[in-house]
Design a protein around this nucleic acid. Structure first.
Length: 733
RNA sequence: GCGCCCGUAGCUCAGCUGGAUAGAGCGUCGGCCUCCGGAGCCGAAGGUCGUGGGUUCGAAUCCCGCCGGGCGCACCA
């Protein structure tokens, strides 16, 4: 079935063919939205493109096309070469509610990979940008009728995890048992459930610390980390990780610790490997918790350790060799890559002009690089590997999410599986939950991978590597899949030096030179502990929200603290998500706390407020016994639509643009246009609200038309914010 | 050196595949709550769209050069 716009394109194409003898494919007739409401509801500049071929002025062509009658169009007018359409308002609203502006569903599964945080420290604002962009993209794809599978890749075997393990074992002298005890102590911490973070949680934690230190003499070296972590394990590791770099720099012996640790992790069956698994698993749980605060969830968590154990790389390597995509550089050669398996990139257009066009895939010591593992993973995502993971539920009380499992394949004896290693104090999954019990897990486990298109949300600094993965697919003969491997590249989040200076004035220490501070922003670095933790940011925004709510409803905190909290959470989610999605993806976000904390103007809460205000009117109407017209009732629409104020109509007609904008957003991976669209709608509503009394309007027909306008606006905005931007809307704020 | 990205109002950013008079927010200044919630609204000031060419009926937008800034181009992920 054609969309409403599709019908206009069809109608115009036929008319153009009949009148001018020019065959124009309907989908090539462009539609835009006029800058002012009096210029109509939709518009096409098609006359401009016909002008040259027909050797007639655009205005004359548009004038002739204005005589063509189009479905659902009340009137067509030519204006300055444009053809402006004025719609039958009742019908247009009906079409919109019936989804006739949304493109038809597309078959095939899209796999979106995002978040991918190294499981060795707390998530920071940069990870938030990734997750928010990824999740918003997922929502937009689903809105357009796509089936989407969300994957969050866990690199649980890399040096980053090893570094934290080094921190625990070598720097702090922690045993596996002590790490377990620390995790247990932190997850047992039960701060008061409501009130500002800075007063309540921090206070309670500060009070708890001395007792913990007294109970655990082995923790004498971590007083500072413990105090600063606010009772969070990921935050503790954030502090710890920042100490590892300087420690390595102290001596060669220290440097060697990293490699030793990595070897122990690979070998398995020892305390170090168990600690790595334990730390990584708990970290993933923490990250899922952070993202859950923003309503971001995943379907499956592929683990790098499983990719290795189950032999994905070996299959991929066989395919690469069979296709001649990699070759071995002879060990006796003079080449700097001697002894390595490399992929030649020189012949590909993407890489021309490179001085060194070979990429090492397998090192001379026989180990595979990250890029190789990524290629195996990408093959699996497309169902091209011919092998699959086993799956089991990931151990978290938050929601049902699966993780990969190597099954019985090649797990060295004695390796403590992460699930067995979890501390007893963590909440256990409800055994009654479907698909969550014992043996039935495998039978009930859904299938993952085998997507028809793959979108990897990874920051722009990895573009080169993503290109190589794509090139690998191509060289293996998977041309079509290479074309459907999309790298959603976005610029990094850095710290605005303005913000850094403000923090330094408050006593926070950053290891930065004067030269760094002279720049507009500085890159974050987990290694240096230079960054801003995601949970802390959310806490700060929430605190602000709690205060703002309290200022408006002083009694709420006492009367209904749960409600108070829940509204503040929604405000924080809105502020943060909007902040992360409002920028163009090519724009470096120079993180500034002041901007992230803003609730006024071009912000998430402003959008929520528009919705809350509209719903307040409807609630008030109900209280006064005034009936709100039902938008789903066709006859009501027909009757009231002609009585819409022009401004009210202009407001509603903005929502007809949403499907077009979402399509454009997904095609161009420019999600900011979706955010902007709703911002404009909110702006239009706030203005409408001030200029058009609804309940006070004396004339019955007008009042009912305005109530209908408000009802439609509230529904469309709430739906849009929730479904596309993941911004929840409270009933009051 | 090669490649990608950014440069638009004091600051932070929009400006969609060239198209209607370059727009928002913050900040500044001035107004608006006996009236559906002031997290709001209305108004003012503020821009030679980094720069020089080119293509076009038409360029912030496309092409080329230059200037300034960021990021890539590992047997690290």
């Amino acid at each position: 079935m054609l969309t409403a716009v599709g019908e206009w394109q069809q109608g115009l194409a036929e008319a153009i063919s009949a009148r001018f003898g020019v065959a124009l494919p309907p989908e090539q007739i462009p539609f835009t939205f006029p800058p002012k409401p009096e210029m109509g509801d939709a518009s096409t500049p098609v006359a401009f493109s016909l002008a040259k071929a027909l050797r007639r002025p655009p205005a004359a062509i548009a004038a002739e096309l204005a005589a063509v009658s189009l479905a659902g169009v009340r009137e067509s007018r030519a204006a300055g070469g444009y053809l402006n359409l004025y719609l039958d308002r009742g019908r247009a609203i009906g079409d919109l509610l019936a989804g006739r502006f949304t493109p038809a569903a597309v078959p095939g599964k899209v796999i979106v990979e995002h978040t991918n945080i190294n499981p060795n420290k707390a998530a920071h604002v940069g990870h938030l940008r990734n997750a928010v962009l990824g999740d918003s993209l997922v929502k937009c794809l689903r809105y357009l009728g796509r089936t989407v599978e969300v994957q969050n890749y866990i690199d649980d075997t890399g040096v980053q995890v090893a570094d934290v393990v080094v921190g625990f074992e070598r720097i702090k002298g922690f045993s596996l048992g002590e790490v377990k005890a620390l995790m247990a102590a932190l997850s047992a911490f039960d701060p008061p459930k409501s009130g500002p973070f800075s007063e309540v949680r921090l206070g309670a934690w500060a009070a708890r610390c001395p007792a913990l230190l007294a109970e655990h003499p082995a923790w004498r070296g971590v007083e500072r980390e413990l105090e600063r972590c606010c009772g969070r394990f990921d935050s503790f590791c954030w502090e710890l990780y920042a100490q590892v770099g300087p420690w390595y720099a102290q001596s060669d012996e220290h440097k060697a610790a990293r490699l030793e640790t990595l070897h122990l992790m690979e070998a398995g069956g020892n305390e170090t490997a168990a600690m790595a698994a334990l730390v990584a698993e708990e970290m993933v749980r923490r990250h899922l918790g952070t993202m859950e605060r923003l309503g971001i969830r995943y379907d499956v968590l592929p683990h790098e350790s499983d990719i290795l154990k189950i032999g994905f790389w070996r299959s991929c390597f066989d395919k690469l060799k069979a296709a001649g995509a990699v070759h071995l550089v002879p060990a006796e050669s003079e080449d700097k890559n001697r002894g390595c398996w490399v992929m030649a990139l020189a012949e590909s257009d993407e890489f021309k002009g490179m001085s060194d066009a070979d990429k090492v895939i397998v090192r001379s010591n026989g180990t595979v690089t990250y890029i190789g593992k990524d290629m195996a993973y990408q093959l699996w995502k497309f169902g091209l590997l011919g092998r699959d993971f086993h799956y089991r539920p990931f151990d978290t009380p938050l929601y049902e999410v699966w993780r990969t499992d190597a099954g019985t394949a090649q797990i060295p004896d004695g390796v403590i599986l992460a699930s067995e290693a979890r501390p007893e104090s963590l909440p256990k999954r409800d055994a009654g939950q479907a698909g969550m019990t014992g043996k039935s897990d495998h039978e009930a486990s859904p299938s993952f991978g085998g997507g028809e298109a793959v979108i990897n949300v990874i920051d722009v600094r990895q573009s080169y590597l993503q290109k190589i993965v794509k090139e690998g697919l191509r060289q293996m003969g998977h041309e079509a899949q290479a074309d459907r491997s999309i790298h959603f590249a976005y610029e990094m989040v850095a710290l605005a030096t303005k913000f850094v200076r403000a923090e330094m004035e408050k006593g926070v220490r950053f290891d930065l030179s004067e030269e760094d501070l002279a720049k507009p922003f500085v890159e974050m670095s987990g290694r240096k502990g230079l960054g801003f933790q995601a949970d802390l940011l959310l806490d700060r925004i929430k605190d602000r929200a709690l205060h703002e709510i309290e200022a408006r409803e002083p009694d709420l905190a006492k009367a209904d603290p749960a409600q108070w909290e829940s509204r503040a959470d929604m405000l924080a989610t809105a502020a943060l998500r909007y902040y992360m999605v409002r920028y163009n993806r090519n724009q470096v976000v120079a993180f500034d706390l002041e901007q992230a904390l803003a609730f006024e103007g071009d912000t998430g809460p402003y959008l929520q407020y528009a919705c809350v205000r509209a719903e307040a009117i409807l609630r008030k109407a109900a209280e006064q016994g005034v009936a709100v017209p039902d938008p789903d009732h066709a006859a009501t629409l027909e009757a009231l639509a002609p009585a819409f104020d022009d401004e009210g109509w202009a407001l509603l007609s903005l929502f007809m643009r949403v499907p077009v904008q979402v399509k454009a957003a997904v095609d161009g991976l420019d999600l900011n246009i979706v955010a902007r669209q709703f911002y404009e709608a909110a702006q239009a509503f706030h203005a409408y609200y001030h200029h058009f009394p609804v309940l006070q309007e004396p004339e019955d027909l007008k009042r009912r038309a305005r109530l209908l306008t408000v009802a439609l606006f509230a529904r469309l905005l709430r739906q849009g914010l929730t479904d596309l931007l993941g911004i929840p809307v409270p009933e009051r704020m």
